[in-house]
Amino acid sequence: MLWYKSWLETRWRFLIGLALLLCSAGAMVLTYPRLQALLSHIPEPQLGGALGERVREAIELSREYRGFVWAQGFSQNLAQLGTLFAVLLGTGGLLSGGAALFTLSLPATRRDLLRVRAAAGLAEWLLLALVPSLLISLMSPVIGESYGVVTALAHGLCLFVAGAVFFSLAMLLSTLFTDVWRPLLTAIAIAAFLALLEQLAPRDGGWGIYRVMSGESYFRSGAMPWAGLAASAAASVALLYAAAVNLERRDF
């Protein structure tokens, strides 16, 4: 029944997130022909600097469908919107959810409570990551392009594993603050900060969570970013463990 309760508590976030991500993915596919026509009139831009380099690359990639989906979708729209909803799904919980004493009077350990919330939330996040990705595959024929299901799932998986870190971060923050807003805004701030760092960092240097999220190495060379995925998974586990420890030592 804890699963049912988690569902009741997060269903609107999940459904709205699913709707928005599906719309984003769908709109992206449908606008591609327009964009392609537009770009054919634009020569290669001459822009300097690291940022300029990125913009130039995005434009170049977008001339071709697969590149477009990666640059617009998995690197940008789906990643940003997805991260937001991963955080939203991880917020809430015992401290801010209300009726904490009632829940704590049930014969379940705090670890159980957290475990079920985390599992339910991650299951929802998995759907949010995979279903819009699959939609891209499904809808591509509509505009006369094709996008492989395996490719879509691979990118969806990267989105899921990397995004799970932000989900877990939100869950940890939710065990530190008693309201909904501070964990939410703090997690978003951290996500934005990491994004900024990655933008400013040198192109090929180091590891970035958003690179894992977009499945960049898979896009460029067909190799899944296993190291990055493993590190992300480990980070998620560590954050959730910290959340459990925090929840246990808390007085209600």
């Binding site: 209300g98 009632f102 009077s105 014969p107 350990t109």
Partner: peptide
């Protein structure tokens, strides 16, 4: 924590605030 589960399995509780899931 483990004993706590057993205790709560055999106990009925109603708090001061009577907070339940809205």
């Amino acid at each position: 924590p483990a004993a706590g589960v057993e205790i709560r399995r055999r106990t009925g509780f109603a708090g001061e605030e009577k907070d339940l899931y809205d």
